[in-house]
Design a protein around this nucleic acid. Structure first.
Lengths: 221, 221
DNA sequence: CATGCCTTTACGGGAAACAGTAAGGAAGTA
DNA sequence: TACTTCCTTACTGTTTCCCGTAAAGGCATG
């Protein structure tokens, strides 16, 4: 089993819950922090000392408070850790169940496990740690299904980008210009209209405003 | 101090955290549930038995799972409890920090306290329970400031109604018709345009889509 | 090479949103 | 009453969105 683990969540209760699970797995060398920056420092220090952590479990969203933070959330930190410490296994324990976000974490940021907080959260976390230690990729039930089923709900990054910019008040014309400037593939006004139209149909939205409202509710943007 | 308390949150860890706080306040008769429907049942039962709960602490958002639920979230339940059991004091313990949502809970649903989950969450909860027991209204720090500052941002119910309908995909023309049907005061297309324009300026939005995105982020709708 | 399929792009017409101006009406004040 | 002020409403362009059609390009298959 893992010998040295660090967990990070801003809520004390959650931290305690994770510690309980680790305790149940006979892992005694556990560090717990409440800020992403602290997690980074500890991981850095441990690596420098030649006694690196083997597993890092973190939440995604952290409340801002008086302390100025370099890393605004788990995702920022994970992105950097993945590059600097490829041997460190990273798991995410979060309430977030938006498929797209999870997909990105798994595919681009190389996390080894994703456990969704919920009524069975700690049980899943237990199972997840065992699986990850066994060199498997673990994704807790609800999300796993969604990942497989709706994996290609055919909403890709381009769509998200589009929706994002639309929600920020850019006209379709402006977005077209932007895409041209960035040398992105479909960049004509017409294509952007088509895409948004497709999204409107998919989400059963009456118009662009409705569409943005819907995808915001879904947490897509 | 309160004798009989019920707490509701879908996350085990959070429930445990709340129990710890209550324990620290020497409250021994505590019920803890993980579903809104269960909370409702227990409260109903206790009232029927002539031994009602004095305090109800609940989260706002609950994950959906296999169990079919009548109450989708804390807000639904609170709304009903406020009417049926006016003597029951209700506190909310949630991660949510959108001002408008909190305001509605306080003003319309008569909650006695609002504690924002966070690094100091349990400490605030402790203070909150003491305050509420003392017949005060308690709102934890961060949110309290925001409440006082932006209280009169001069957004009235009519504006909210407008924004709501716009976000649901109705055209300004349709909204105009709707207002006429309901005999609501400013109901001309022109007035609605003007109102929305005013709102756009207030929120520094580039267009209606942007406006809806902004007010959704603020929790206004 | 030809064919069909799909995506991107272009264009046009109608609807809605956006912006500005002006007229009408209610309420308050001198 | 006369005046101001604020709100509602009406009207008129201009821009953007929405929707359909169609042409042009890539790409695989026969």
């Amino acid at each position: 089993m893992f010998k040295k683990v660090i967990v990070s969540d801003d809520l004390t209760s959650i931290n305690l819950g994770m510690l309980t699970v680790l305790d149940g797995l006979q892992i005694s060398n556990v560090t717990s922090v409440q800020y992403c920056d602290d997690a980074h420092l500890r991981i850095q220090k441990a690596a420098q000392d030649g006694e690196p952590f083997e597993l890092f479990i973190t939440d995604l969203s952290f409340k801002k408070d008086h302390r100025e933070q370099k890393y605004q959330g788990g995702e920022d930190l994970i992105q950097e850790l993945h590059l600097k410490y490829p041997d460190l296994k990273i798991m995410v324990y979060s309430i977030e169940d938006r498929i797209q976000a999870v997909k990105r974490l798994l595919n681009e940021f190389g996390i080894k496990g994703y456990v969704c907080k919920g009524r069975r959260g700690l049980i899943d976390l237990h199972k997840g740690i065992l699986a990850v230690h066994n060199d498997e990729i673990y994704v807790s039930d609800g999300v796993a299904q969604a990942l497989h089923k709706k994996a290609n709900l055919e909403i890709d990054d381009y769509d998200i980008l589009l929706l994002k910019h639309v929600s920020l008040g850019m006209s379709q014309d402006q977005i077209s210009q932007l895409c041209k400037d960035k040398n992105m593939s479909p960049n004509s006004l017409s294509s952007i209209e088509k895409r948004l139209n497709k999204l409107r149909i998919q989400f059963k939205a009456k118009n662009a405003i409705h569409l943005v409202a819907i995808v915001k509710d879904l947490g897509l943007i």
